[in-house]
Computed example of a mutant assay.
Amino acid sequence: MSPRVSAAVARQTRASIVARAVATASVTGLEGLTIGRLATDLGISKSGLLGHFGTKEALQLAVLDAAGEIFWREVWEPVAATPAGLPRFRAVALSWLSYLERDVFPGGCLFVTAAIEFDDRPGPVRDAVLGYATRWQRELLWQLHRATDAGQLSPDTDPEQVVFELTGLVLTTHQALRLRRDPQAPRRARQALERLLAQAASC
Rank of each mutant, 00 (worst) to 15 (best):
A93E: 07
G107I: 02
G123L: 15
V125Q: 05
L42D: 05
A21R: 04
G85C: 01
K56R: 12
P3R: 08
L30S: 03
F89Q: 10
G51Q: 05
L193D: 00
A66W: 00
L30Q: 08
L97M: 11
A8W: 15
R102C: 15
S47N: 08
E31Y: 08
A115G: 13
S202H: 12
P186V: 10
P122L: 05
L140H: 00
G43I: 02
P83W: 03
T113N: 07
T24W: 10
Q152V: 06
R20H: 10
R90F: 09
L153T: 13
P155Y: 13
V63K: 02
D127G: 13
Q143H: 11
A198T: 06
L30V: 05
Q12I: 14
D156F: 06
A176I: 04
P159I: 03
P124H: 10
D65L: 14
E77M: 09
G54W: 08
R181M: 10
Q161S: 09
E165C: 12
V129G: 02
S2C: 09
R11C: 07
R187K: 06
Y99W: 12
F71H: 14
R138E: 01
W136N: 00
L94K: 14
T167R: 08
Y99L: 08
V22C: 01
P186R: 09
R135D: 11
A8T: 13
L94Q: 12
D182Q: 05
A25V: 01
V79A: 11
I116A: 15
L97A: 04
T172A: 11
L177Q: 02
Y99Q: 12
E69I: 03
Q137T: 01
V9R: 10
A25N: 03
L144S: 01
L38D: 03
T172Q: 11
P186I: 05
K56G: 04
L86F: 12
T28G: 09
F118L: 08
D103E: 14
P159F: 04
P106Y: 03
L59A: 08
K56H: 14
W76G: 10
S45H: 07
T40Y: 09
R4G: 13
P183Q: 03
E194P: 02
L171K: 03
E31L: 06
L86G: 14
I116V: 13
E101C: 06
I44R: 11
W72S: 11
P83C: 05
D149H: 09
V170E: 04
S16P: 12
S2Y: 07
D119T: 08
R181Y: 07
L140T: 00
S45C: 11
Q152D: 08
G68K: 00
L33R: 12
Q199L: 06
R90S: 10
G123Y: 07
A39S: 08
L130W: 15
L179G: 07
A200P: 01
V22Q: 00
E74I: 06
A62D: 11
L193K: 00
Q12P: 08
P155E: 09
R138Y: 00
R73H: 07
D65Q: 15
D120N: 07
A128S: 10
G151P: 14
L166G: 12
R11F: 03
G85M: 00
L100T: 12
P3T: 04
D119C: 13
T13D: 09
H174P: 04
L196H: 00
A39Y: 01
E165N: 09
A58W: 01
R121A: 10
